[in-house]
Design a protein around this nucleic acid. Structure first.
Length: 290
DNA sequence: CGCCAGGATTGAA
DNA sequence: TTCAATCATGGC
């Protein structure tokens, strides 16, 4: 491996409002970003190896490449979103006030649909640390190598075509267990154009959700994650056990609410940016005792 | 409804 | 040290 490139001058991305980089990259939306000793976070975005840190009024972004794609970086980090306006759209109740106060710079990212779909197929019944391990193995084995900051290579997320070309046993060897056939089938569907992920952008949320749920290993929760994190359907509201716990404890503290009741609240109570509200509740309930 | 499907981590023995 | 419970989602 050749010696690492010197760190270039960082790019500055202005941000509208607060941006908590650590909370955002470590809140279960993405699985390939890691903190460095200096407080910055590094990860792979498409074909770019990046390092990011928050600074006054925006983000500082280093790239291991000569010509970083600034538009792609801006899109991924959603730096143009007016977070105060999102906060104001939330219901004015005690749980949401507390959740926002606990982490006012928490953001939603905007991911590549294939990487997001594949990652969340792998997420079922897995904890975040384990999802990270699986995705890292998958990228190392089947992703294109990229020059990183350290001299060690980084890897692109594997393409649908590449994954469609390997065997179920190869995927199982990445420790994904029973999720392997689902991932393989999804890769084949996308690689063969039987499923056009780009076309989902132009559908309404319910139709896109139904389409995603035709895939094996994709139920309502995983479909909602993809709709929210990759396509930006802000009303999508994935309910995992943590969010269910948050809704139960914060909105029905006295009596046990059925799953149907929790889903009805999720669908009706949180307004046009309900997905953001969900992210705040998720983060709040997971970090309150730490 | 109730069961089953990896594998890493945590806690008990 | 071993071993069992836990985690947590979708398919049947």
């Amino acid at each position: 491996m050749s010696s690492p490139p010197p760190l270039s001058e960082p790019l500055f991305l202005p941000v509208h409002g607060a941006y908590d980089v650590a909370a955002t990259l470590d809140s279960g939306q993405v699985f390939r970003w890691l903190p460095a000793a200096d407080g910055s976070w590094s990860g792979v975005l498409g074909g770019q190896v990046l390092r990011v840190r928050a600074t006054d009024g925006g983000l500082l972004v280093w790239s291991a490449h000569l010509a970083p794609d600034l538009a792609a970086v801006r899109e991924f980090f959603q730096t143009e979103v007016d977070l105060a306006a999102v906060h104001q759209s939330f219901p004015d109740d005690a749980p949401m006030r507390a959740a926002v106060a606990a982490c006012p710079g928490l953001r939603l990212l905007r991911q590549d649909p294939w990487e997001c779909l594949a990652s969340f197929i792998l997420s079922s019944t897995k904890q975040i640390v384990q999802i990270r391990q699986i995705v890292a193995l998958l990228a190392e084995r089947y992703g294109e190598p990229l020059r990183g900051f350290t001299g060690e290579p980084e890897y692109r997320f594997p393409t649908p075509a590449r994954l469609a070309s390997v065997s179920e046993a190869d995927l199982r060897a990445c420790k994904m267990g029973f999720r392997a056939p689902g991932l393989l089938a999804a890769a084949q569907a996308v690689a063969s154009d039987a499923l056009d992920l780009e076309s989902l952008r132009h559908l309404d949320r319910a139709t896109a959700r139904t389409r995603l749920m035709t895939l094996h290993g994709v139920g309502g929760k995983i479909a909602d994650c993809v709709l929210l994190f990759a396509y930006g359907f802000d009303t999508a509201f994935p309910v995992d056990v943590w969010v269910a716990r948050a809704l139960q404890e914060l909105y029905f503290p006295r009596r046990r609410a059925s799953a149907a009741r929790l889903h009805r609240l999720a669908a009706t109570h949180f307004g046009p940016h309900a997905g953001y509200a969900q992210q705040y509740l998720f983060h709040y309930i997971r970090t309150r005792n730490r």
